[in-house]
Nucleic acid binder design. Sequence first.
DNA 1: TTGTAAGCGTTATCAG
DNA 2: CTGATAACGCTTACAA
Lengths: 336, 336
Amino acid sequence: MKSYYTIKDVAKKAGVSIATVSRVFNDSPFVNEETRKRISKIANELNYTPNLLARGLMLKKTDTLGVILPDLYGDFFSEVIKGIDEIARKKGYHILVASTHSHKSEIESILKVMRSGRVDGLIIMSPHIDSNSIRNFLPDNMPAVLLNCFGDYSTLTSITIDNFNGAKMMIRHLIKHGHKNIAIIKGVEGNYDAEERLRGYRKALKESSITESPRYLLNGEFTEESGYMAMKKISSIRPRPTAVFASNDSMAIGAIRAAHELGIKIPVDIAIAGFDDVPISKYIKPSLSSVHVPIFDLGRFAANKLIEKIEKGDKMKHEKMVLNTTLMVRESCGCL
Amino acid sequence: MKSYYTIKDVAKKAGVSIATVSRVFNDSPFVNEETRKRISKIANELNYTPNLLARGLMLKKTDTLGVILPDLYGDFFSEVIKGIDEIARKKGYHILVASTHSHKSEIESILKVMRSGRVDGLIIMSPHIDSNSIRNFLPDNMPAVLLNCFGDYSTLTSITIDNFNGAKMMIRHLIKHGHKNIAIIKGVEGNYDAEERLRGYRKALKESSITESPRYLLNGEFTEESGYMAMKKISSIRPRPTAVFASNDSMAIGAIRAAHELGIKIPVDIAIAGFDDVPISKYIKPSLSSVHVPIFDLGRFAANKLIEKIEKGDKMKHEKMVLNTTLMVRESCGCL
DNA sequence: TTGTAAGCGTTATCAG
DNA sequence: CTGATAACGCTTACAA
């Protein structure tokens, strides 16, 4: 007994040519109803399904989307994937995922694999500035959608989150409630989201003629731990800031933990705000004011756009899409 | 200009046969150093990489692991994926993911795709009892590792988390601290993890000769919302339980939210414990006592086992592996 | 050390 | 309606 059957086996058993079997599996109208039934029955018995590699080789179509992300873990990425998956499955595509850890060499090797006939198109998120070179590694016939990347790639479709305005709104909000000494815990250096959020912070300060103080600029790595460390430092800055804007929620949560340990009351002593609006932010105490990011949509839009590009051909004009962010005011900023 | 090049293009340009080009890309020792260099150079210029579909078709090897999960979202699944990805990349494999939403039809169609030459092996997590039939859909030559599934598949390798003992330990712990009226918020009906945790709960009660009360058995869906609802019900049960064991952390967090709203103090009025030890549990107030589950290891072990099976052939004996869970005592159970 | 040619499992083009 | 047969892009005996 063979461990798997091919179109030939089915054809032989049904006493027809492989062409006819192929027709059956491709819903060709030109096949006799009885023949069709007989072939279907035999295929079923043999548990036969067409080999997708062979089919892909012929058709130059794999019904697969390549998804390249910096990491696969955490609320953010997993929600992006879920969004992509939802659309993909709905439209009959599968997804091949890979994480780069923002390493240039990883990106290149992944791209090499992905472009070698295995996927019909690519969704790439590479917020790190070094990974800019991605473009050069993309065969220019390969449909692609870029997520949260630097640069204005007029040649590529890209979708970004409105980091800049999100941060600006949040800082404006803090200023409106009387804060003047506002510290920021920055994100990873050279990261698109981090830079844009910083830019928003600066813009809001400038608007209100508040001079930016370098002492209020803390480094962070987008991790809980780095937020914790930053808050420890902040506690000894004089004059002590009355508000802290963490460039993402993980860091905000770390900052809150540090504050707890230091006996600093939030939001009474210091107001804290984050960015991303991860699910947890509602549940921590105090609940975290944050900037909501439509992550799920990001994934869905990306998948939709990509599939559109794949199916309409690349003559589709390239576009840049920006997703709105919204303010989520909760307890930690002290305005409730 | 062609949009992509094949082995033929390279061969022609280098003035050799495709066999030689192939040899170069497969590191065959039998190729003249100069020829090799010339071919490499030309391949580079053309930005040529071997088509992996064609190669896979010949070799019957795709260097890809299929990963089938109930869902792609959330701390749990994303950490499983990350674990798998870490090992896979290390050993030169890629991963094709799909989510089933525990729908039988989805599982079947996914399996059909996965087995059609696209993956070398499968990691399947299907804790729902209906999806039991998976076995029948697996070509028996396809290496596979089952995660947290029902049944004792002596024919398949499986890895599970020790849900039973985890729950038992937690309940024992509560009993030791004086609780006798312990409610449980159950997980999804027919779900492997849910059933096992319930079994652990019962075992611990029986051990201490505490009679199980049906009123203390609340239904839940593993969601935050269902935990919230359950707690609302619990608050009006008389005699009111002094402790609540939620079958996962999401529900425990929902329960805590409900308690807050109802003015029930945790852990003073009611102790609460969860399961999974998701990252958030450390950060909520009160911090959540939970049962730690080595999720990341689950993914890594699964990937390692699968790759081993793929490479050693399926003569490898099938095994059942159980990963230990450990008690994480924090504030919410009131023992600190 | 290299080339020739068969074959992997499909689909597509033509005849019939 | 059906069957040969040539692709698809690659690896691998076997021959030279």
